[in-house]
Amino acid sequence: MAWLMSVGVFLLLCGLLGLLLPSPRPARWRRGLRRGTARVTSRLHRRVVVEPDPFDTLRLQTRLGYLSTKIRSVESTPHVYARAHRLMALEAAYDDLLDEACRLAGCPGEPDGERSEAKRWQEEQELAARGWTW
């Protein structure tokens, strides 16, 4: 009788181990069970889409407007100390803000280190098409 009990425990442990260890190709009933549980959990756990804060958008538009005014004033003033350096720093900050604004507005494209006038113009047009002003 003891050997029958040990065989039963052995088979129970093998079954539990088979459920825990990943198999190369899961059985059909396991795949169906996995799909069913995924469907139920997706219905129960709705993903909440977080809307951007309108004050963040306003703050970003204000900063973009301030930087664009500073860039225009540095470009229009002929005798500014370290003009090229200031202009490069202002344009880099403006480009970073444009990338952040595009991310916030959901514009297509990816931010990268390569900056050009064409990309800046395209981002400004995308933001203007979405109603952004600065």
Rank of each mutant, 00 (worst) to 15 (best):
residue 13 L to A: 15
residue 72 R to K: 11
residue 10 F to G: 09
residue 72 R to W: 04
residue 109 G to Q: 05
residue 47 R to E: 12
residue 128 A to D: 02
residue 37 T to A: 09
residue 58 L to K: 08
residue 87 L to Q: 04
residue 85 H to K: 14
residue 64 L to W: 01
residue 8 G to W: 04
residue 74 V to L: 03
residue 63 R to L: 09
residue 5 M to D: 11
residue 46 R to T: 09
residue 125 Q to A: 13
residue 73 S to Q: 15
residue 75 E to R: 10
residue 19 L to P: 00
residue 87 L to M: 09
residue 9 V to I: 15
residue 68 S to P: 01
residue 8 G to I: 00
residue 41 T to H: 03
residue 4 L to T: 09
residue 41 T to C: 02
residue 24 P to L: 02
residue 1 M to R: 11
residue 121 W to Y: 10
residue 105 A to S: 13
residue 46 R to P: 01
residue 51 E to T: 13
residue 61 Q to K: 14
residue 1 M to P: 07
residue 70 K to G: 05
residue 116 S to P: 05
residue 12 L to Q: 04
residue 23 S to I: 01
residue 111 P to N: 07
residue 12 L to S: 13
residue 85 H to Q: 13
residue 119 K to V: 09
residue 14 C to A: 14
residue 9 V to Q: 12
residue 69 T to I: 04
residue 47 R to I: 01
residue 114 E to L: 06
residue 70 K to R: 15
residue 82 A to G: 05
residue 134 W to N: 06
residue 42 S to V: 01
residue 7 V to I: 10
residue 69 T to W: 03
residue 124 E to W: 04
residue 106 G to T: 06
residue 87 L to N: 02
residue 75 E to F: 01
residue 115 R to G: 04
residue 65 G to C: 03
residue 107 C to N: 10
residue 103 R to V: 08
residue 123 E to F: 12
residue 100 E to L: 05
residue 45 H to G: 02
residue 52 P to I: 01
residue 18 G to E: 02
residue 103 R to Y: 07
residue 23 S to Q: 14
residue 65 G to H: 08
residue 99 D to P: 00
residue 90 L to W: 01
residue 42 S to L: 06
residue 40 V to F: 09
residue 92 A to S: 12
residue 57 T to D: 05
residue 61 Q to E: 13
residue 132 W to Y: 13
residue 68 S to A: 15
residue 74 V to F: 06
residue 9 V to W: 07
residue 18 G to H: 09
residue 11 L to K: 06
residue 123 E to L: 03
residue 67 L to Y: 06
residue 62 T to A: 12
residue 114 E to H: 07
residue 87 L to V: 01
residue 45 H to T: 11
residue 89 A to S: 10
residue 35 R to V: 00
residue 7 V to D: 12
residue 15 G to K: 07
residue 77 T to R: 13
residue 50 V to C: 11
residue 49 V to R: 15
residue 54 P to D: 06
residue 103 R to N: 05
residue 22 P to H: 06
residue 134 W to P: 10
residue 9 V to C: 10
residue 18 G to D: 03
residue 48 V to Q: 14
residue 62 T to L: 12
residue 109 G to H: 08
residue 115 R to W: 02
residue 71 I to M: 12
residue 6 S to C: 03
residue 37 T to I: 14
residue 53 D to I: 00
residue 28 R to P: 01
residue 31 R to K: 07
residue 132 W to Q: 04
residue 81 Y to H: 15
residue 117 E to M: 05
residue 18 G to R: 13
residue 109 G to D: 06
residue 61 Q to A: 15
residue 128 A to P: 01
residue 126 E to T: 07
residue 13 L to I: 02
residue 61 Q to D: 09
residue 63 R to T: 09
residue 57 T to V: 11
residue 1 M to D: 08
residue 6 S to P: 00
residue 27 A to D: 14
residue 2 A to D: 06
residue 28 R to D: 05
residue 117 E to A: 14
residue 76 S to F: 03
residue 8 G to V: 00
residue 133 T to M: 11
residue 123 E to P: 00
residue 76 S to M: 05
residue 57 T to M: 04
residue 124 E to G: 04
residue 104 L to E: 11
residue 4 L to K: 12
residue 38 A to S: 11
residue 127 L to R: 10
residue 95 D to Q: 13
